[in-house]
Design a protein around this nucleic acid. Structure first.
Lengths: 126, 126
DNA sequence: CTAACTGTATCAATCATATTAATACAGTTA
DNA sequence: TAACTGTATTAATATGATTGATACAGTTAG
């Protein structure tokens, strides 16, 4: 169901989170679809239950899934809300970087130029 | 000469670095001006010599100062080069954030809008 | 009602890293 | 040579992130 990379440097629970986010955002997992149980996934990945649990908990806090104790974890509806939240965090980070950049005298125009660059570079698909 | 904030969460050597960067970028410290000796500054701040030393070492690596063993640490010339380096690091961070944002479907226009906001918000002085 | 599933909470062990400190080494100069 | 300078090495400490062991609790099929 899911592949872990032990050499990536990323922690296991973060990898699990990112995997499910991708699957949900791309609609590979549909609204209200049941996710593997924490124990089933932990077992199949040969990791601890709590590691999966932590990923699920945070996915729920971020609005990507909802949990029903005793039943399971399911893909949430209104994924747009979750997206919004993620974007909010990105805004936070961006805000700090802008602050830094200003301290070094980087003007708005220059900053905008960088964005353009990055959007063109990374933009090979879509 | 310099003020430390023990409640800021920032480590001491980082605070020292930022302080001197600001002083140098604002020309409060002029080219080739002598900085306080590691021991003098450590003593006046009541901290360890190596904490100051670390700040100075990194300031040198980043091109803000130069060091002459036995003599002291001095404000570097060509501060523009140091600025460039700092901006390069900011670019790195920015690149990662753009990548993230794209993963959540944030379009370039929306991103540019955020930048505008932040530049206007933060822009109370100058 | 009970067995076998589900998720959850608590606490501890582990690991990694950042930060600071103690101390010895080495160059400069009056 | 004494009293300054910076530097390198190593260790102690603190902090936080990550994972694990284990117990608690809800749901449901039989």
């Amino acid at each position: 169901m899911l592949q872990l990379d032990y050499r990536s440097g990323e922690s296991l629970y973060v990898q699990i989170k990112e995997n499910f986010k991708r699957l949900i955002l791309s609609k590979s997992l549909k609204e209200d679809e049941l996710l593997p149980s924490v124990r089933a996934l932990a077992s199949s990945l040969a990791i601890n239950v709590n590691t999966v649990q932590r990923a699920y908990r945070e996915l729920e806090q971020e609005g990507y899934i909802y949990s029903i104790p005793g039943k399971g974890n399911f893909v949430a509806g209104k994924i747009e809300d979750a997206k919004q939240k993620s974007v909010s965090e990105i805004r936070e980070e961006l805000s700090k970087i802008v602050e830094k950049a200003r301290a070094f005298g980087v003007e708005q125009e220059e900053f905008q130029e960088m964005i353009k660059e990055f959007y063109n570079k990374g933009g090979k698909q879509s």
